[in-house]
Amino acid sequence: MPKVLIVSDSHGLEEEVGVIRDRHKHEVDAIIHCGDSELPFDSVHMEMYAAVRGNCDMDDRYPDEETFSINDLSFFATHGHLFQVKSSLMPLSYRAEELGANVICFGHSHMAGAEMVNGKLFINPGSVRLPRGITEKTYAILQWEGQKAAVHFYSSEGNPLPNMTYETNFQAE
């Protein structure tokens, strides 16, 4: 069963992003950082992350977007500030449509959540430093098999947050 680890908005935390990565690196197929790490692109703590540039990232070696596929899913990762995600998911949805992505990973709002909109799964892992809307500092793991998918949220210490789990089905095209 494929899995992807998704982290965002760590705002300068070094050891913590490395600990989260190391905690899950042997069980996931990809590791994403949705921006605002505030760490240098070549930081040892960011190794293995498919990382994008957020509005607080000064290292311009980070790309604004990352795209890749795992098995039958096409991923699009971005921070979200360039798509006004605090107001609407529409600009982000349009870009995902252009890219042919069906899983969109983003941050910026620091608000953890997942939802299926028009056949696309939007995932915001929240923030491992400055959460909004909840007290837990969070990250997420997406796992899927066939059309069934689940987004599991975890506290930054690695404790599952079962009340935040989101389960859905991808529709066959």
Score class of each variant (00 low, 15 high):
49 Y>Q: 06
4 V>H: 01
107 G>A: 06
89 L>C: 08
88 S>L: 07
106 F>K: 03
60 D>Y: 13
88 S>D: 15
173 E>I: 14
155 S>M: 03
150 A>L: 11
89 L>V: 13
138 T>I: 13
114 A>L: 05
52 V>W: 10
139 Y>H: 13
157 E>N: 07
73 L>I: 14
141 I>L: 05
104 I>K: 07
82 L>N: 06
74 S>K: 13
142 L>H: 01
59 D>F: 10
171 Q>L: 15
128 V>N: 01
7 V>T: 13
108 H>K: 08
59 D>T: 05
92 L>I: 09
34 C>R: 05
66 E>W: 07
19 V>I: 08
52 V>F: 10
68 F>G: 04
170 F>A: 00
39 L>V: 05
85 V>I: 05
131 P>K: 09
57 D>M: 12
37 S>Q: 06
158 G>V: 01
114 A>H: 01
5 L>H: 00
157 E>I: 12
96 A>W: 03
44 V>W: 14
112 A>M: 10
140 A>Y: 09
12 G>M: 10
40 P>C: 09
126 G>C: 07
148 K>V: 03
32 I>C: 01
119 G>M: 07
159 N>P: 01
40 P>G: 14
72 D>T: 11
82 L>M: 13
155 S>N: 10
111 M>D: 02
156 S>I: 06
73 L>F: 06
14 E>R: 12
7 V>H: 07
124 N>Q: 11
92 L>W: 04
14 E>T: 11
8 S>L: 09
6 I>S: 02
50 A>M: 15
21 R>S: 03
82 L>G: 09
25 K>I: 15
54 G>N: 01
83 F>W: 12
16 E>G: 00
143 Q>C: 06
91 P>W: 06
167 E>I: 05
160 P>V: 08
23 R>S: 10
105 C>Q: 03
26 H>C: 00
131 P>T: 06
20 I>E: 00
27 E>G: 02
2 P>S: 13
86 K>T: 14
172 A>V: 04
75 F>H: 00
1 M>F: 11
146 G>V: 05
76 F>G: 05
88 S>Q: 08
87 S>R: 13
82 L>T: 07
104 I>H: 03
135 T>W: 11
13 L>M: 11
63 P>L: 03
89 L>N: 11
131 P>S: 10
83 F>I: 06
23 R>P: 01
65 E>F: 14
159 N>C: 11
109 S>E: 03
23 R>F: 11
125 P>N: 07
8 S>R: 01
93 S>P: 03
155 S>V: 07
152 H>D: 10
59 D>K: 07
156 S>M: 04
130 L>V: 13
156 S>D: 07
36 D>N: 14
76 F>L: 15
128 V>D: 00
70 I>Y: 00
118 N>Y: 11
40 P>H: 14
51 A>H: 08
132 R>H: 13
93 S>H: 15
154 Y>R: 00
43 S>N: 12
76 F>N: 05
172 A>F: 11
26 H>S: 09
22 D>R: 04
80 G>I: 07
144 W>H: 00
6 I>N: 00
154 Y>I: 02
5 L>I: 02
41 F>I: 04
1 M>I: 10
40 P>Q: 12
75 F>D: 00
116 M>K: 05
115 E>A: 12
1 M>G: 05
165 T>S: 09
9 D>S: 08
13 L>C: 06
166 Y>W: 08
